[in-house]
C-alpha cells in the first residue's frame, strides 16, 4: 500500500512513483479556488438545483 503525499509538498520525499497516489489527477490551485469561491458556487448552486429538478421530473 502506498504512502501518501499531501499535494503541494513537492519534495523528493513525498514523490512516490509506482504507488497508488502517484497517478490520479489532482486539482490545480485555480480549480480548488473555484470550489469554494462564493460567487462561482452560488452560480453552481443554481445549476445543480436545476439539474436535480430535471431528474425529479423524469420520475
Amino acid at each position: 500500500m502506498a504512502g501518501c503525499a499531501r499535494i503541494g509538498e513537492n519534495t523528493m520525499e513525498t514523490r512516490k512513483p509506482y504507488e497508488q497516489t502517484y497517478y490520479p489527477p489532482v486539482p490545480t490551485k485555480l480549480t480548488k479556488f473555484f470550489r469554494t469561491n462564493i460567487f462561482y458556487q452560488f452560480f453552481r448552486f443554481v445549476v445543480l438545483n436545476i439539474k436535480m429538478l430535471r431528474m425529479v421530473r423524469k420520475h
Binding site: 501518501c4 503525499a5 499535494i7 497508488q20 497517478y23 490520479p24 489532482v26
Partner: peptide, 16 residues
Amino acid sequence: KIFTESLYTERGIEWI
C-alpha cells in the same frame, strides 16, 4: 474511479 482517486490523493488518504 478517476475523480474519486483524485479526491483521496488530494486529501492525503490511503485506500485498500
